[in-house]
Design a binder for these strands. Structure first.
Lengths: 190, 190
DNA sequence: CTTTCGACCGAAATACGGTATTGGTCGAAA
DNA sequence: TTTCGACCAATACCGTATTTCGGTCGAAAG
């Protein structure tokens, strides 16, 4: 039954967010879902499986959010700005909620490594397409789109760090837009 | 006697590079410097003291190297490129030598935190000055130098990561110059 | 007076062994 | 098809005994 499976995912998400992957036991999940541990194993073959599914859903929602934001903007520049600021604010929210996950991040990076890699590839694809659009619409002037999109990724990634460390008084939208100002306009006199 | 003090620093540097801060004992340092542990304490008041001195010397040499590279370039743009590429190649060398240090980096970050912060401030100062020069010589066109220099720092920092992880087949000079192309010229059509 | 050293200290890391948890399995029953 | 209690092997955890390590001290050598 799908409703039970969703119940498990639902409670697991809460537990993972609150306690992290390791401190959450299968017993906890089972109890919160009102069933025996073995029953959980009827629906999922392992704890990692549940985690993977939770992440899969979260990622899907995240990407949906990004696509809506991008679609709502009209010029290529606005689309890229929308992408980046949406991305940053979402990550900021995540960092508040998933705080144990970021602490543990070294332990189970086998997992998260892959998710990160996938997201990085996704981001690269999106940026490339947006650059290509901008190129075709004569908004941008770049020769190697692959290189440029990687550079933008890297620059954005640099803005991530304070989200998980400094925490207070950091405005990701402001910082992102400053960064994008540089990337769009450059600093050379025209 | 200064010659003994230098001997200690010399052997300590080797040991720290090879084994890291924690795995290196005062006993090790003393033995390698051919004296008793207490004698080391005659010259330095603590292990951290020795470490600080090692770092101080390395940093000094690093900054000297940077200044020479910058002075050798003529235009503001060339100076910034010289700064960045020198910085990246030096860090690449460091990452090979100090490999244990980067692994341990989470443990003794009390220490390294400060060094990093100092270097970050130094870098910011240098970049600001170079930007200001470029501004005055009408090479650059930026309104808020503080913001711009921070953005450049962040972008460069993003390039650092692969040095300590991917390791193989990463060309920091190439990547740096690609990044600087974006920063100087921007991607908008002119 | 400078320098070296062996002996020593307290705190913290480590080793260890026994116990409790935990992820996962299985077969029975509903 | 779904649920569950009983069970297993591996590992986490916990208290303790032991070692290691950073740092001190006083004596002695030069």
């Amino acid at each position: 039954m799908d409703i039970k499976k969703n119940k498990i995912i639902e409670v697991a998400e809460q537990l993972f967010a609150q306690f992290g992957f390791f401190k959450t036991t299968m017993e906890d999940i089972a109890k919160k879902a009102h069933m025996a541990k073995s029953s959980v194993y009827y629906y999922f073959k392992s704890k990692e499986d549940i985690f993977a599914e939770v992440i899969r859903q979260d990622t899907f929602l995240f990407q949906q959010k990004l696509e809506i934001a991008v679609a709502a903007a009209d010029t290529p520049e606005a689309k890229i700005r929308a992408y980046v600021t949406t991305r940053m604010t979402h990550l900021q929210d995540l960092s508040k909620f998933y705080l144990t996950l970021t602490d543990e991040y070294l332990d189970h990076y086998f997992f998260v490594e892959e998710v990160r890699k996938n997201f990085y590839e996704y981001e690269n694809r999106v940026l490339k397409n947006l650059l290509l659009d901008g190129q075709e619409q004569k908004y941008f002037d770049v020769d190697d789109i692959t290189v440029i999109s990687r550079m933008i990724s890297i620059a954005i990634k640099g803005l991530e760090y304070p989200l998980f460390v400094d925490k207070n008084g950091y405005d990701p939208v402001q910082e992102s837009n400053d960064m994008l100002d540089v990337i769009f306009k450059g600093i050379e006199k025209r």
